[in-house]
């Protein structure tokens, strides 16, 4: 077996139960959403469920990564291989990516069912084309954001575990310090108007703002377009690369078993 495939298989295997648990919880929530909405005769009741589950998947990747990393941290058995740090990390990313894709697919189908069938009287009716466009963009956005957070989590985890010889408190302070420092630098840069103007120069429209309004004794779901700036997206992509590369290096050179 190819070593990369071996890694993938291992990562899939050790996370399977975690995924099945999460998946079952999500499906229960979705079914519960329809059931309750039907019971109260308020079909728009599924919108909060969609939004909530959708939001939850912004943090799915980092939460899952933390779970996986902590399984490994018990033994650090994953480091007992000649694979490069980047391979070790991407193997986990790949497994989480497929999990997230499956979950988002389920949520997408659920949304479609609500929009076009279960809640068609109360949801703003948009065309199939627009829906597809919006939902694909939204899905990509959730994935991108999730993996951006994931790169931070992975980086911070490796920082924490690189300092095996240091007191726990100091390790935590370092990790939290890095986050605070980055955010301060970021907001400082954004406070400069010319830079902000440059960053937000290019925008794409996405139907992503959904809200509820109450009319004629019934909740209605309203869908509105929102805008996403392009340049920051590129910046985050770069940051993702930097963080993952740094994490891989730390994993190879600093994290001890």
């Amino acid at each position: 077996m190819n070593p990369k495939f071996g890694l993938l298989k291992k990562d899939y295997r050790i996370s399977r139960n975690m995924f099945l648990t999460w998946g079952a919880a999500v499906i229960l929530a979705l079914i519960g959403g329809i059931a309750l909405s039907a019971y109260w005769s308020q079909p728009a009741g599924t919108l909060p469920v969609i939004i909530l589950i959708g939001l939850l998947h912004f943090i799915f990747a980092p939460v899952f990564m933390l779970g996986l990393l902590n399984i490994e941290a018990k033994t650090q058995l994953w480091l007992y291989t000649p694979r490069r740090g980047i391979e070790l990390i991407f193997s986990k990313f790949a497994v989480i990516f497929t999990y997230q894709l499956i979950l988002q697919m389920v949520l997408t189908i659920y949304t479609a069912i609500n929009l076009f069938w279960f809640g068609r009287q109360v949801y703003d009716q948009i065309g199939m084309r627009l829906f597809l466009e919006a939902i694909i963009l939204l899905n990509i956005l959730i994935l991108l954001f999730g993996f951006y957070l994931n790169s931070w989590l992975t980086f911070l985890w490796t920082v924490y575990h690189s300092m095996k010889n240091v007191a726990k408190l100091v390790r935590w302070i370092t990790v939290i310090g890095i986050v605070i420092a980055y955010n301060m630098v970021e907001s400082l840069l954004l406070s400069a108007t010319p830079l902000r103007d440059f960053l937000f120069q290019y925008q794409i429209n996405v139907v992503s703002d959904a809200s509820l309004s109450y009319q004629d004794q019934q909740w209605r779901a309203v869908l509105e377009p929102a805008q996403i700036p392009v340049i920051p997206l590129l910046w985050y992509l770069l940051l993702f690369t930097i963080l993952v590369t740094a994490a891989a290096r730390l994993l190879e050179r600093k994290v001890e078993v």
Partner: peptide, 23 residues
Amino acid sequence: TELDMFYDAFSVGETVEYVASQF
């Protein structure tokens, strides 16, 4: 290693397969 270290989800065969894939 002196420690009792395995992936608990694995079977004996899967453990051997994994090590075989890595080396």
